[in-house]
Amino acid sequence: MNNFWQRILTGIVFVIAIIGGMWWHQYSYLLIFYTVVLLGMLEFAELVRARPVHAQIGWAVVLGSFWYLASFFVLSGAISERWLMFVVPLIMAVFITELFRKSNTPLLNIACTLIIPFYVALPFSFLHFLVFKGGSYDYLLLLGFFLLIWANDSGAYLIGVRFGKHRLFPRISPRKSWEGAVGGFVFTLGIAFVLSLFIEQLSWGHWLAIGVLVSVMGTFGDLVESMLKRSVNVKDSGSLLPGHGGVLDRFDAVVFAAPLVCGYLILIRYMF
């Protein structure tokens, strides 16, 4: 099977799993995306291991898992927001543990430990704000968010392969083009308008604004991950998804887009 068809098949299975998880139940949503968060943290840990730094992977996974799961149950109304305070002693534990490791790079070890949950678990926890409003679960906004993410990726890929001539950021990602970025932007705005016709929680103007945020920040997320991978001389963050690389390769746009979309919804008073 050549790379194109492998990419298509993997993409279909991937989309079915994501949409099915968020549609079935709030706990199937939690299971799917916590799996993504866990695998993403482990992939990021492998990137960190490519340099002479000794991050505390165990504490990184515990810290990221706690924040992601606790924020889910807080927003669902199952537990009090006071549970989130326990993230402070978990962070302190990282510093205290480093005292006993006798490493020559304690500052780098601590920094690389904390960046793993910060880069992966924290951005994904913002997705909870898209599915919970007043403790009630509704997956439609999250579905719309991912359709915009996929529209941007697909548009950039299709237009970039066919018409891409001017490099967008050659120092970081020599294959990405301005034509592809513009194609992804136009595709995303088109899907945003279509979404406004079917998901009526937001007006067409708000959907277009979210489309702009998703396209721009998704592109930055892609470039930042390329920068991180280039810094440790790897092509993909992992090999879990044939034809697509790793989990972080597939969700790099979410890392940057989700917090900004959530912030926008707060600013327009959709939430809180």
Results as ranks from 00 to 15, higher is better:
residue 114 L to G: 09
residue 123 P to D: 10
residue 185 F to E: 03
residue 189 L to G: 05
residue 181 A to K: 01
residue 124 F to H: 02
residue 193 F to K: 14
residue 215 S to N: 05
residue 158 L to P: 00
residue 154 S to R: 13
residue 110 I to S: 05
residue 146 F to W: 13
residue 171 R to S: 07
residue 212 V to R: 00
residue 215 S to C: 09
residue 183 G to I: 07
residue 157 Y to L: 15
residue 146 F to H: 12
residue 211 G to R: 06
residue 159 I to F: 13
residue 129 F to P: 03
residue 165 K to H: 10
residue 185 F to Y: 14
residue 215 S to K: 05
residue 133 K to E: 13
residue 146 F to R: 12
residue 219 T to P: 07
residue 153 D to Y: 08
residue 184 G to I: 08
residue 160 G to Y: 10
residue 190 G to M: 11
residue 143 L to C: 11
residue 185 F to A: 11
residue 188 T to N: 01
residue 165 K to G: 12
residue 112 C to T: 13
residue 222 D to H: 03
residue 159 I to W: 10
residue 153 D to Q: 12
residue 157 Y to N: 08
residue 137 Y to W: 07
residue 172 I to R: 10
residue 203 S to N: 14
residue 182 V to Q: 10
residue 183 G to H: 11
residue 176 K to E: 13
residue 208 L to M: 13
residue 136 S to G: 10
residue 134 G to W: 14
residue 174 P to Q: 00
residue 145 F to P: 04
residue 144 G to A: 12
residue 215 S to Y: 06
residue 157 Y to C: 10
residue 172 I to V: 11
residue 148 L to Q: 01
residue 221 G to Y: 03
residue 113 T to E: 06
residue 139 Y to H: 14
residue 139 Y to T: 07
residue 118 F to Q: 04
residue 129 F to S: 08
residue 143 L to H: 03
residue 181 A to M: 11
residue 123 P to F: 10
residue 194 V to G: 07
residue 130 L to D: 08
residue 192 A to Y: 01
residue 216 V to W: 05
residue 160 G to F: 05
residue 220 F to L: 15
residue 189 L to R: 02
residue 145 F to A: 05
residue 148 L to D: 00
residue 119 Y to I: 06
residue 113 T to V: 14
residue 213 L to F: 14
residue 182 V to F: 13
residue 168 L to H: 01
residue 210 I to Y: 01
residue 195 L to T: 04
residue 114 L to I: 14
residue 136 S to M: 12
residue 119 Y to A: 02
residue 128 H to C: 06
residue 126 F to D: 05
residue 147 L to H: 01
residue 192 A to I: 02
residue 167 R to G: 09
residue 148 L to E: 05
residue 169 F to G: 03
residue 193 F to C: 09
residue 201 Q to I: 03
residue 132 F to E: 02
residue 202 L to K: 00
residue 134 G to M: 06
residue 196 S to W: 00
residue 126 F to V: 09
residue 130 L to T: 04
residue 151 A to S: 15
